[in-house]
Design a protein around this nucleic acid. Structure first.
Lengths: 152, 152
DNA sequence: TGCGGATAGTTAGCTTTGCTAACTAACATA
DNA sequence: TATGTTAGTTAGCAAAGCTAACTATCCGCA
């Protein structure tokens, strides 16, 4: 790794460690800001995010949803129960396997999610609009890499 | 379905909406992954992050710490109490104003934080190291922009 | 055929961390 | 001195993460 010594303090700029470190910090701060917008939807980030997987990725099983959201199955099971109670998704037993539960976003969920996204975008878009096209492209190019680092 | 209408469904790729949307998703997933490493320190992200402000930013008041971490004062008050119980910080009354409490990281906190950061960075940097130099540069270029979007 | 292990979800219970409301203590000022 | 403001604490609630233990179903195979 970093040749001479493993400094705990200031890894070489551009090194994997420096990238990882600064990326972590940036992600924390970005999400802290956006969390406030999420909450305005009345749902909170975890439910919104799970719902987003359903809305944009189509019907899923509980397990697949948990994997996509990187939480444990019981956690997702409870999220699904809450979302169902709010009529934001429906459950249906899988016809070919009695164990699995397929969940699907309702039209109310679609509407709510789009409203939430609009809010979130509104919060960011003023700043995003202030970036130059080149800067915007830099971020766009980085996003797939971030997703890869997140293990997707 | 691209450029004809302003769909709430699939905004023009490269638009502020697309950037904000995908960035949000990427940040969520990235942090979910890193959270597991944070937990390995025995502390969890919020305490680690608050401690980080103290370690790298020097002694602070409770209120300043809350503002830096973007949480309410009672939340920070409790975090500080827990960290104090673990001997990770000390409280001292401000000599010139009996209301304010100054908190300062202990040497144990310094050690723990550096160890935690090492762990976190190790988890990411293995993957970062697998990126091409060009990809790494893309991320590096994006980070300051992310920080700007986060409002820092 | 049916037994036993593997798999999908649920339930129960705990922890952490966010919040608001209501309080105390200390300061500032009219 | 009385009044209002500011810093922090306490109490109580809700969301969301986890593990452990359970039920129900499926699959492989003797």
């Amino acid at each position: 790794m970093a040749s001479r010594q493993v400094s705990t303090r200031a890894p070489r700029a551009g090194s994997a460690a420096a990238v990882a470190d600064r990326l972590h910090s940036a992600a924390i701060h970005l999400l802290r800001r956006l969390r406030r917008e999420d909450d305005a939807s009345g749902l909170g980030a975890p439910r919104l995010s799970a719902l987003s997987v359903l809305v944009f990725g189509g019907p899923q099983t509980i397990g697949a949803l948990a994997a996509a959201e990187q939480v444990r199955v019981p956690t997702m099971s409870r999220l699904v129960a809450q979302l169902e109670a709010d009529d934001l998704l429906t459950r249906a037993p899988d016809p070919s396997d009695g164990r699995v539960v397929r969940v699907e976003a309702t039209s109310a969920a679609h509407a709510l999610l789009h409203a939430g996204r609009r809010r979130r975008v509104a919060a960011l878009s003023a700043d995003v609009a202030r970036l130059t096209p080149a800067e915007r492209k830099t971020i766009l190019d980085a996003i797939p890499l971030l997703e890869r680092l997140a293990g997707r």
